[in-house]
Every structure is written in C-alpha cells, then in structure tokens.
Nucleic acid binder design. Structure first.
Lengths: 254, 254
DNA sequence: TGTACATCAGTGAACGCGCGTTCACTGATGTAC
DNA sequence: TGTACATCAGTGAACGCGCGTTCACTGATGTAC
C-alpha cells in the first residue's frame, strides 16, 4: 500500500531545498515540502528532547497531521532517525569546513584551531545532534550505508590539513618511526582513502588527534569535566584551545 | 507509605555483600539479599538491552515479583539507574586498578599499558555499562553526588602514574612550559585534588591522555572505527596499544 | 514464656500515558485518449 | 478541450504493546511487656 519511497529521493528533497524550479507537478512539490517539514519537525524534537524521545506521533501532531499520514513520507521511525543522522553529519561537516576555510590559508595552525573551534561550537549548539552521532548508539538501530559519505566530511578536513603539513615539510621525519607490521595492517582501511603523501606514522598520529578532538568535546558535553575544568565558558574555551594546540603539536600543525 | 529508604544503606547492601554476619534479623537479611538481586537483575537487563530498555516491571518479572513490590527496595527507576552507574564505575575502577597493580612496579610504561588494556577489556566486555557511563547522558536523568567517588577511581590510577613519572624525573621539564593564566585558572578544580609534585603542564597533558583513552574506546565501541581500523580483534588491539603508547610519550610514561 | 501490638513485605487492581504500525476509506490531483 | 481512469494524500479507527507509579489490602515477622 505504501508508495515506492526512494530513499535517495528523500535525501535530495531534504538536503537540496533550493534547486531550480523545474516543471514539477503540484503534488511533487507538496511532497518535497512536507518531507522537509517532517524532517524539520523531527529535528526540533531531537534538539529539545533528544533522540530517545523522538516519535512519529509527536512529529505528526506538530504538523497537524494524523499519525498514519507520516508514513506516506517516511517508512519508519528508523528511517527518520537515519535522515537526522545524515543531516547532523552534514551540518557539522559544513560548519567545520566553513570555519577552516575562513582561516588564513598560509597559517596551518590557525586553520587547525579554526576547524576545532568550529567543531566545538557546532557541538555545543547542537548537543543532541552531537550525541546522536558520537554518543551511545541508539538501541536496535544500525546505521545504513548512506551515512558514510556525510560522516567523512570532518575527517576529510583533517586529512587535508595533514597533507598540507606533510607537503610543507612540517612533520618531523626523524621522529617518524616505521610502524610495526600489525599496526600497519590495522590501518589498511583508512590508508586506502588517504593520499600517499601522508606517511603511516603521520596517519596514526592523525587518528590520535581526531580521537582527541571528539573525545574532548564528548567529555565537555557529557559532563565529565565537572569538578575538573572550571565551568566558566571562557575558561572552558581556553582549556579546549590549549588541549587542541597540544594535539596539533603531534602532527606538525602547531 | 514507603519505608524510609536509606540510599547509603542500599549502596552498602549492594557493594559489600560479604560483611561479617552480625545479629541481623531475618527481615534485614532478606531485604539486603533481595536488594542485591534487584540490582543484579537490572544489571543483566542493562547488559543485554541497554539502559533505555531498563524497566522496573521487567526487573520485577525476572524476580517473580509483582511490579509494585520493587518499590519496597528502590524508590524509582532513576534510583535504580544511579545504583547501576555507581556499580559500573566501581567494577571498571576495580578492573583498571587490578590490571595496573599486576604490572611490574618499576616499569611505568608497562603499568600504563596494563591500565589502558584493563580499561579497554572491561569496556569491550561491558559495552552497555560503558555507554551508560561515558556515552550520551540518559535523558531526564541527573547524576547525584554519590557517583563522584566511584567515578574517580580510574582517574586516580592515572594520577598515580603521573606522579610516579614526575618523581622519577621522566618528564621533560625543559619542554614543560608555563601555562597561560586562563588555562591555569580553568584547571583549578582538578588542581585541588592532585599532588603538587605534578606540575600544571603535566596535569594538562594528563587530561589530554585521559581524554584519549576514553575517546579511543568510545570510537571503537560506538562504531567509529568502521572502515578505518581493520575489524580483526588482534589488529584492533595492536592499533589501540600503539595509540596508547603515543599517548604515554606525552606524559613520560612510554 | 506467652500475648498484644507495631512494623514490614508482597499482592492485585487500577490510573493514565504514549508508542509504532496497519488498514480500509474518501476525496483530490494527474494523465491518457 | 473534455472525459474516464489511475494515482496519490490524508483520515480515523483500531491493534497490541509496555511503561512508572499509587493505593488499600492481607499475612508474616519483630518487639515490648
């Protein structure tokens, strides 16, 4: 009874709101618009209550629809969650890219700090989205393939910086050791997606630094810096910046 | 109508199961035993389904009780969650302490790696407990004061190692810079609980390394190493060990 | 040692709530001739 | 350009589920005299 829902079509409708107005029918336009409104309502609920409280019925209520009507647009609660995850990855990616691109091109340290600050800013502004993406997995939910593209936008920014640092000769190749064989094998999946100009050792350090960025923001958002770091926002920022500077030293970005 | 429930009493009953048999009444003993069984059943549910699926009714079912009977022992679902959080922190703390203490005393690098390996092992064996403690906060739940003691057991192990490294002169004091004033102020809460032999710079590095440990395990457990690190368990372990060795270099524990 | 009263454990029924999902349906929009 | 049929959006009712929590109650255990 359900119409053949194209998942990719939904994503298009959601992520490309302003494409040139082609000769689409009224129905097509209404469908795209309502799909976007459903996702927007879901996003608002996520922002306020968190992923656990997200329900199709509440989305329907907010839009003045009967709950079953939502099923014309979204196959299930899980699919809606997937859309939100994709959107979160995407806006986070955009925020980090934007911040990094606004920094002076020649100053790698500044570009790194800008990226980190952008990451943290977005996360503090969207705590539930952050939790959805980097926190505990939603029980019974398995992320589909569609998320891996958007998920890699931020890492890709970091990879760009690492490559730039390597190209600029900023990485201490004396200190760069050869990795043990098993560690090199462990890294083979990432290795495939990263330019050869980044040596294995730098790649391993890059993962360390990426872990650190996400870990630091997790700690802050999930309350693990209580009684550790002062609560005053400026001091928190100073601490984070200091931590990220230390991280940057590991990969020639300080 | 509810009896005056002493929270500390419950914790005693749960965490000190084998205290000397004093002249307690049958009722008292039955109460302690059932309280322990309730927490044990809740722990099993947590292990299987995760915190979101934890319900008082399910606990009651498992013990063959009527759901309202559980309220004789536990004031609410939140209190039960708190008990589980405390227990998770405690068993994690015990696991890390045990692992660290089993390493040769004179070998700080080995003690560090043992602590990290113990942390990761416990986490892989108790993924939902890890998520409960280090993952997204449970919505609508605020951790009470009772958790902060157990929560600091693992950090305390790391502090011990940092102090030992400092005492042994393993930390490069040339490289140790003076911290900017705002970063020093940001650190004042931790500072109060850490021996003076650990300088500010080392303390800041210590937090970096602690973030890294938790972050690395989070990434692995929450699926963020998919398509990054090979799935084979031995290779994952090799990668983790390598990352922790790099972390150790920052604090003179390599 | 035995009895009277107080305390406590566990029962069973109920309240009120919200959820995801299905299904047969009406009425509006789109399309082919 | 108009009509006949096909497609689609949204409705309303229902199914079946589980949850946390309250409350008046029975019967067992504990205690004071």
């Amino acid at each position: 009874l359900l119409p053949p829902l194209s998942f990719a079509g939904i994503i298009d409708a959601v992520t490309a709101p302003d494409r040139a107005v082609t000769a689409r029918t009224v129905r097509e336009r209404a469908r795209e618009e309502l799909t976007r409104e459903i996702v927007a309502a879901a996003r608002r609920q996520l922002a306020v209550e968190g992923a656990a409280a997200l329900s199709l019925r509440a989305v329907a209520r907010e839009l003045g629809l009967v709950s079953s009507a939502v099923y014309r647009y979204v196959a299930s609660r899980d699919e809606l969650l997937t859309l939100l995850i994709i959107e979160a990855y995407d806006t986070l990616g955009g925020a980090v890219e934007g911040a990094e691109e606004a920094a002076p091109r020649g100053d790698l340290a500044a570009r790194w700090q800008a990226a980190c600050a952008g990451f943290r800013r977005w996360s503090l502004d969207h705590p539930h989205e952050f939790a959805l993406v980097f926190g505990s997995p939603v029980p019974g939910y398995a992320a589909p393939q569609d998320t891996i593209g958007p998920a890699s936008r931020v890492p890709r920014v970091l990879i760009g910086l690492l490559a730039a640092a390597a190209d600029a000769g900023l990485v201490d190749h004396e200190a760069a050791r050869d990795l043990p064989a098993d560690v090199r094998r462990a890294l083979s999946p990432v290795r495939a997606g990263v330019p050869d100009t980044i040596p294995d050792d730098l790649l391993a350090r890059g993962l360390l630094v990426w872990t650190l960025l996400v870990g630091a923001v997790s700690f802050e958002l999930f309350g693990h810096t209580h009684n550790v770091v002062d609560d005053e926002p400026d001091l928190r920022t100073a601490f984070f910046t200091d931590q990220m500077r230390r991280a940057a030293e590991l990969v020639g970005l300080a």
